[in-house]
């Protein structure tokens, strides 16, 4: 009973996900491009970096990178916490 339910749910979900992949814009032909066009054209002048990806990672979306560094730190602190020596 439960197995059938989970199996059906799994199949429906995968169906929708694959459908989403097919409904999306054709591969290699993005539907809209204003934000990325802006990055490609202006990153060199605004950030003075040749690598557009790096200028996004550390400048335009630097806050994400701070969050990501925080995630890594949280994981390392968490691993240290979980694998620490404790009583018993």
């Amino acid at each position: 009973m439960k197995r059938w339910l989970f199996g059906a749910a799994f199949l429906v979900l995968v169906g929708y996900l694959i459908g989403g992949g097919i409904w999306l814009h054709p591969f290699g032909v993005p539907a809209r491009d204003e934000m990325d066009r802006y990055f490609i054209e202006n990153a060199q002048a605004e950030v003075a970096a040749n690598n557009v990806v790096t200028s996004i990672v550390f400048d335009y979306r630097g806050f994400d990178t701070l969050g990501e560094a925080t995630v890594l730190l949280a994981a390392v602190v968490g691993v240290a916490l979980v694998l620490r020596k404790v009583k018993g």
């Binding site: 990806v53 996004i56 990672v57 990501e68 890594l72 694998l83």
Partner: peptide
């Protein structure tokens, strides 16, 4: 497009952190 690459970079590191913590829990 550069944005997805930046996002993927972030997502990869997050995934790495998740995996590390889960493995630590599995060990314990």
């Amino acid at each position: 497009f550069p944005t997805p690459q930046a996002l993927t970079l972030t997502a990869i590191v997050i995934g790495l952190a998740t995996t590390a913590l889960m493995l630590a829990f599995a060990v314990v």
